[in-house]
Deep mutational scan, measured.
Amino acid sequence: SIVTKIISIVQERQNMDDGAPVKTRDIADAAGLSIYQVRLYLEQLHDVGVLEKVNAGKGVPGLWRLL
């Protein structure tokens, strides 16, 4: 499923980069989806406690990390 793919992308990127959070844009590119589509999935995963959003604010790139 797309959700499983997104989780594995975040996991893979974090492992490659010493646990650093992953940008929404990088996840979207790797999943082959638009940034808006991916954001909806990321928000859902956040709501159920799978991911945390590391930063927030208007015009700030979203950074995500697995919990």
Score class of each variant (00 low, 15 high):
K58C: 13
V3H: 10
R39W: 10
D18C: 14
M16I: 09
Q11V: 09
E12K: 10
A28Y: 02
T4L: 13
E43L: 07
V60Y: 12
Y41E: 01
G59A: 06
K53M: 06
R13Q: 07
Q14S: 09
I6P: 00
I6F: 02
Y36I: 10
A56G: 12
D18T: 07
V54R: 01
P21F: 08
I27V: 06
G59K: 06
L63W: 07
L63R: 11
A31V: 14
V54K: 02
G57F: 05
L63D: 07
L66F: 09
L45Q: 00
V50K: 05
L45F: 01
L42V: 02
L66S: 03
L45I: 04
I35Y: 09
I9Q: 01
D17Q: 15
R39A: 10
L51Y: 01
V10K: 01
W64Y: 02
Q44H: 15
G19N: 08
L67C: 14
L42A: 01
V48C: 15
G32W: 03
A20Y: 10
G19S: 05
P61H: 14
D47T: 13
I27C: 01
R25Y: 06
D29N: 11
H46P: 03
T24R: 02
K53Y: 10
L66M: 09
N55I: 07
L67V: 14
T24S: 04
E43Y: 08
L40N: 07
R65S: 07
P21L: 07
V10E: 00
G62E: 15
Q11L: 11
G62L: 15
D17E: 12
P21D: 03
E12R: 11
A28G: 03
D26K: 02
I6T: 00
S8N: 11
P21H: 04
L45H: 02
I35V: 11
K5T: 08
R65P: 00
L67N: 11
L45G: 14
M16T: 08
I27L: 04
G32Q: 06
K5E: 05
G19W: 05
W64P: 10
I2T: 06
L63E: 13
A31C: 12
V48Q: 14
K58Y: 07
A20M: 09
E43M: 09
D18K: 12
Y36N: 10
T24A: 04
Y36M: 10
N55L: 07
I35H: 05
G57D: 08
L66T: 06
G32S: 06
G57R: 07
A31I: 14
I27T: 01
M16H: 10
Q11G: 08
D26Y: 11
I35Q: 05
Q11N: 08
K23Q: 08
A31K: 01
K53N: 14
L42G: 00
V22R: 01
P61E: 15
W64K: 01
T4H: 13
G32A: 07
N15M: 13
V38I: 09
I9D: 00
V54T: 05
N15P: 02
A30P: 01
K58Q: 12
Y36Q: 11
S8M: 12
W64L: 00
S8Y: 10
R13C: 08
G57V: 06
N55D: 12
L45W: 01
L33G: 01
K5D: 04
K53W: 08
V10Q: 00
G19T: 05
P61F: 13
E52K: 04
R39D: 05
V22H: 01
P61Q: 14
V50H: 03
K53H: 07
T24Y: 01
A20N: 11
D18W: 10
K58E: 13
I6G: 00
W64S: 00
